[in-house]
Design a binder for these strands. Structure first.
Length: 835
RNA sequence: GCGAAAGUGGCGGAACUGGCAGACGCGCCGGACUUAGGAUCCGGUGGGGCAACCCAUGAGGGUUCGAAUCCCUCCUUUCGCACCA
């Protein structure tokens, strides 16, 4: 037995990690038999090194998993690797290492780091996305979705670097320039595969309301991302050169149908089909072509940049407003997007900022049709800004006088009757483009046949294995396209020559369903057994960074709905409770290599041990807040464990031989009673803080207080006090299990505990010792603190008042004034209100 | 610009449904043990008077017997969205 913790921690941590493994403590049963708890943390990308963000993420999950296990739940707590993705390919280009080798080595290295932290994972369930036994199911899901029309092919723009001759991912575009050659990124249109997430847009949106286990801000971000917007689609008849109806119509989407009498022109997107009507030899056509060329030439990756100056031209086309018969010019402009709504708008400059700005620039008419709701001063002269809000309609024919909401209803109803309007719900969410012109991802299981067209790979031929020998240069499109042995194949339908799809899937596909695979990770007949998934789902707690609030956390919800409709799962939402932990900061900013302010987990573990490292990440801030790394704070946590060690270990065998106190023992001695009360109150505090509030910093503080109390107690303790020290020590050992599991185990065994601490039932407080016998009740006069009275918590109001009046310090403030009333919270507070 | 969250000692943070503001830790000050202490232990630590008290939870107002907590206005910071019709 080492006498100092600093000499012992490395040995005991390794010892218990080995013991847990040999005893298979964390292996979950195939099917849970009792109450279960699925504790999940976001799986890491195997970059090669763990960083403090990981340590924090996994320490939080581990604390909860261990706690729930001791609470009697059967816990599923798995870990795996999000091991497809661009960095592996970049490393290959830079260093010539094969992505598979690079990835596998990183998994080994990071796996060792994770194991050294002593996290309670069921490693028998480890998965890795880049292994064919995993990604074959990505392909299988793709085929199932293709069958149902949920996977389809379409053309879309991608970021394109003309100099590298390659497609760039968004994160490879820096300020509109290629990350590697610094040339301006343009756009090019490619055929790509899409998942029809929009088919579930409505459900994905509406369910957010009932997802109360998710942080509000994540739900808000998702709601914005989905961007539901209710309005109407209105058909404006298209007129010919002589102003006669052509029989066709331009459909516009609007949420402000009530403003339609104020429409003074229409605007269509630059790629709107209506532009095909402009005669090819006309002046309009020439001006249009020139305009479109200018728009197109612009670099199009505009993320993070200011909106462009609005620009447009009159196309010469004319349409008729079906509500008032007015003839309106059709413009085309850069601020109307083809992807949204119908790609065409009616412009109401008086009541829309963008339309207003555009109308001002080109001198188009601005007509007010909405007056502020409690009528303000009448408008004089031309307005200086658009009036955006709802109000009362003016100059709107039969609808004049109606309020905006009513008008929208009645105008839509009338338009529907006449056949030129329909209700329309529009989402900002677009279908999920999953094609990546990359090597290190899941091959898309499709074959192109000259005779049969686009043909899915038959299920029995899965997986379509990623070939190993692929030249990676970073230029020239999909690497797989250059591997003849991969590309050339047979058409599964006609047997003729076929070519494989050479794009791979977005890696977000991998992480959209991995948590189901954990339930049944070695199944080679289906992605997982639905019965097993039913038993383990939903995920009781999902811990991860806020960075995934939209993409991953929407995609995985989408996948669950697809899986549900395939009959594989029986739930609508996969994650019941979501915890987004804050970042780990150093010097006020996120740790990053470029800032040189990183803290290496290995270094911390080596110097202080896994327990201290974990303890600090839990103690220094509540999980959802950012955590400022502070070496002094780490030392404080280390000292705490040292003090635990020093208090119990030197006399551990004596304590182990002592009996535990009987329920009433110690009641007759103030210091013993005080200690026992502290023990049981601490049990209660720690339990409720973890369970009800998911706060992990306050339980650690409570344990520190308990230790302080125990130290005070032991200062003048003798042999007869050993039972009480044993009670503190054993309980402290168990309460430490979620936070410092190795010290917990060592303490437990040393003090005579049987078996593994992690397998013990979580302690329950004794009712006898939970409550104080004497409490200090604060006494206020007119709400100001004037004294305290010492009494049993059950003291009556009358007794409390008379005792308070007897207190000289209180009495001073009562002198000479009548008591108007008293407010008494039994055992907690007395407030005397004077007249 | 729109939306959300948050502002508490020198610092990280406590304070559960309005009820003793500052738990716990860091830092700092003093003491003990020491050749020594950047080890350990003990005590102190919001500010002002150093006693009774007074002032303090971003600022100002309000509700209440009582407000860090609820309401209003403003300020600051962080995050998200940003031509989405």
């Amino acid at each position: 037995m080492q006498t100092e913790y600093r000499d012992a921690f490395d040995d005991i941590e390794r010892k218990w990690q080995e013991r847990w493994k040999v005893d298979r403590v964390f292996e979950a049963p195939r099917l849970p038999s009792g109450r279960r708890f699925y504790c999940l943390e976001m799986l890491p990308y195997p970059s090669g090194r763990l960083h403090m963000g990981h340590v924090r993420n996994y320490s939080i999950g581990d604390a909860v998993a261990r706690f729930q296990g001791m609470r009697g739940r059967q816990v599923l707590h798995p870990m795996g690797w999000d091991s497809f993705g661009l960095p592996a390919e970049n490393a290959a280009i830079k260093h010539g290492t094969h992505p598979a080798q690079w990835t596998n080595e990183n998994i080994v290295a990071m796996g060792a780091q994770l194991r050294r932290l002593g996290l309670s994972y069921d490693w028998t369930r480890e998965i890795a996305a880049h292994r064919p036994d995993y990604y074959r199911w990505n392909q299988w899901f793709f085929l199932k979705m293709f069958e149902r029309g949920l996977a389809y092919r379409s053309r879309r723009f991608v970021n394109w670097c003309g100099s590298c001759q390659t497609v760039l991912a968004n994160e490879q575009v820096e300020n509109g320039r290629c990350w590697r050659c610094d040339s301006i990124v343009g756009r090019t249109e490619l055929d790509q595969w899409f998942f029809k997430i929009t088919a579930y847009a409505s459900e994905l949106d509406s369910e957010l309301d009932s997802m109360t286990g998710w942080p509000e801000r994540v739900r808000v971000m998702q709601r914005n991302w989905i961007g539901k917007s209710e309005g109407a689609a209105i058909r404006f008849p298209i007129l010919d050169g002589e102003g006669r109806p052509t029989g066709d119509a331009l459909e516009v989407f609007t949420t402000r149908l009530d403003t339609i009498f104020g429409a003074t022109f229409c605007v269509v997107a630059a790629r709107h089909p209506i532009l095909g009507r402009i005669p090819s030899d006309s002046g309009s056509r020439r001006r249009l072509d020139e305009f479109l060329r200018r728009i197109d030439a612009r670099d199009v990756t505009r993320a993070g940049m200011e909106p462009e100056e609005k620009e447009g031209i009159d196309t010469g086309l004319r349409v008729r407003n079906p509500y008032n018969g007015e003839v309106l010019p059709v413009w085309t402009a850069n601020f109307v997007l083809m992807e949204y709504g119908t790609g065409a708008i009616m412009a109401v400059p008086a009541h829309d900022e963008r339309d207003f700005e555009f109308a001002r620039k080109y001198g188009l008419p601005i007509r007010t049709v909405i007056a502020p709701a409690p009528p303000a001063l009448p408008e004089v002269g031309s307005p200086s800004a658009a009036m955006i809000g709802d109000g009362v309609l003016v100059a709107s024919g039969p609808y004049t006088g109606q309020d905006s909401a009513t008008a929208r209803q009645s105008m839509l109803g009338d338009g529907e009757k006449e056949g030129f309007a329909r209700a329309m719900v529009q989402y900002r969410l677009l279908d999920w483009g999953i094609s990546r012109q990359r090597y290190w991802g899941t091959p898309i299981p499709m074959i192109y046949c000259k005779r049969c067209g686009v043909v899915p790979v038959p299920e029995k031929d899965l997986p379509v294995v990623l070939p190993e020998d692929v030249p990676l240069t970073g230029v020239g499109g999909s690497p797989l396209a250059r591997v003849t042995s991969f590309v050339e194949t047979r058409c599964p339908v006609c047997g003729g020559p076929g070519r494989r799809e050479t794009d791979t899937m977005d890696t977000f596909v991998d992480s959209s369903w991995y948590f189901y695979r954990y339930c049944d990770p070695r199944n080679d007949r289906s992605p997982f057994d639905p019965e097993v998934a039913r038993a383990w789902f939903p995920i009781d707690l999902y811990v991860g960074g806020i960075t995934h609030a939209t993409l991953h956390l929407i995609y995985c919800r989408f996948f669950t709905k697809v899986l549900r409709d395939l009959g594989l799962v029986a739930l609508d939402e996969p994650v019941k409770n979501l915890l987004c932990q804050g970042m780990v900061l150093k010097g006020g900013t996120a740790m990053s290599k470029s800032k040189g302010n990183t803290v290496d987990p290995d270094d911390m573990v080596q110097r202080y041990g896994a327990d201290t490292t974990r303890l600090f990440t839990l103690f220094a801030a509540p999980p959802e807040k950012d955590l400022e790394w502070n070496e002094k704070g780490v030392e404080g946590c280390f000292r705490f464990l040292e003090r635990v060690w020093r208090l119990f270990m030197p006399r551990a065998s004596e304590i182990a031989r002592a009996p535990l106190p009987a329920e009433e023992d110690g009641a007759d001695q103030a210091r013993r009673a005080r200690l026992r009360r502290r023990v049981h109150q601490t049990i209660e505090r720690v339990t409720t803080d973890i369970e009800r509030r998911l706060h992990l910093n306050t339980p650690v503080a409570a344990l520190m207080e308990l230790l302080n109390e125990a130290q005070d107690f032991s200062r003048d303790a003798d042999g007869a006090d050993l039972p009480y020290l044993k009670e503190v020590g054993l309980n402290l050992a168990l309460l430490l299990q979620p936070f410092a599991p190795h010290v917990s185990e060592e303490l437990w065994t040393s003090l005579g505990g049987q078996g593994n601490a992690v397998r013990q039932a979580w302690p329950a407080p004794l009712a006898r010792w939970r409550r104080e016998e004497q409490v200090e009740i604060p006494v206020q006069v007119n709400g100001r603190l004037r004294g305290h009275l010492l009494a049993a918590p059950s003291i009556s109001e009358a007794e409390a008042l008379s005792q308070a009046q007897g207190d000289a310090r209180v009495a001073v403030h009562l002198r000479g004034r009548p008591i108007r009333k008293t407010i008494y919270l039994p055992g907690k507070l007395l407030n005397i209100v004077l007249g």
